[in-house]
Computed example of a mutant assay.
Amino acid sequence: MNRCLKSARTLFFIAACACLVPAGMLFSSETLAQNQTQRGRVFPQKTQRGTMQFLALQEVSLDGATEPLTPGARVHNELNMLVLTSSLIGQTYTVNYLRDPMGVIREVWLLTPFETTLQPDGSLAPATGPTEKLYGG
């Protein structure tokens, strides 16, 4: 025997929750992550672009010049997951990087082929060549 009466508001709340749970599955984190990788990641404003070869744990060759990494340098792979620099030794990537106030590299993003066509800040790269060829004018 049920001793307490359920109000109409309570029944409406239960029914609304039952409808919203399946709707939440449409926006799963996997779908959102996939859409973000198709659009490209958002990088900080002062990000720079270069070709980086990992030489040692805290040492890289950036556009031909040997430079150190900060002791707590963070390297993000193409899926935006953190990777250890020891697993990248000997490999070369096109990267976006950020320097600390002392001028040492503190954060690195390994770029996807799509992201290399964008500017370091994430905007579209300007068209190369004369505009007459692009627009037929």
Rank of each mutant, 00 (worst) to 15 (best):
L98W: 15
P44C: 08
A56L: 11
L79N: 13
A65H: 07
T51R: 14
F27P: 05
Y97C: 03
G24N: 12
M102F: 07
N80Q: 08
Q53D: 01
G72C: 07
G40F: 04
S87E: 02
Q36T: 09
G50L: 09
A65I: 13
G40D: 01
P101L: 00
T31H: 15
R41P: 01
T47C: 11
V60R: 02
S87N: 06
R74V: 12
T92A: 05
N77T: 01
H76A: 06
E59R: 15
E59D: 09
F43P: 03
G40N: 01
Y93V: 00
T37C: 09
V75Q: 03
Q34C: 07
D63R: 05
A33G: 11
N77P: 08
K46W: 07
G40H: 02
A33V: 08
P68K: 15
E78C: 09
N35V: 03
F27V: 04
T85V: 05
R99D: 06
F43W: 11
I89D: 00
T66F: 07
Y97E: 01
H76I: 03
T66Y: 07
Q36I: 08
A73H: 08
M102P: 00
A56H: 12
N80M: 15
K46F: 11
Q48M: 14
E67R: 15
Q48I: 04
T92I: 06
Q38H: 14
P44G: 05
D63F: 10
T94W: 05
V83K: 10
L55K: 12
G72D: 15
S87P: 06
L84Q: 10
T37K: 15
Q36W: 10
A33H: 13
L88Q: 02
K46H: 14
S28T: 10
V95I: 15
E78F: 09
V95C: 01
N96G: 08
F54H: 01
F54T: 04
A56S: 12
R49G: 03
G72M: 13
T66D: 07
F27T: 04
S86R: 14
Q58V: 00
G64K: 12
M81W: 12
G90K: 04
R49W: 13
N35F: 13
T37R: 15
Q36N: 07
N80R: 11
R49D: 01
E67S: 11
L82G: 07
G90I: 03
H76L: 14
P71F: 12
V95S: 01
D100Q: 11
Q34T: 09
Q45N: 09
F43C: 00
S86M: 10
A65V: 12
Q34D: 11
L88I: 04
P68T: 08
L55C: 05
V83D: 02
L82I: 06
E78R: 15
Y97D: 05
T66P: 02
S61K: 15
L69S: 01
P71R: 08
Y93S: 04
P71A: 05
V42P: 03
L26H: 11
D63W: 08
L57R: 15
L26K: 14
T37A: 15
M102D: 11
S86K: 14
V83A: 10
L57Q: 11
L57T: 12
P101T: 00
P71T: 00
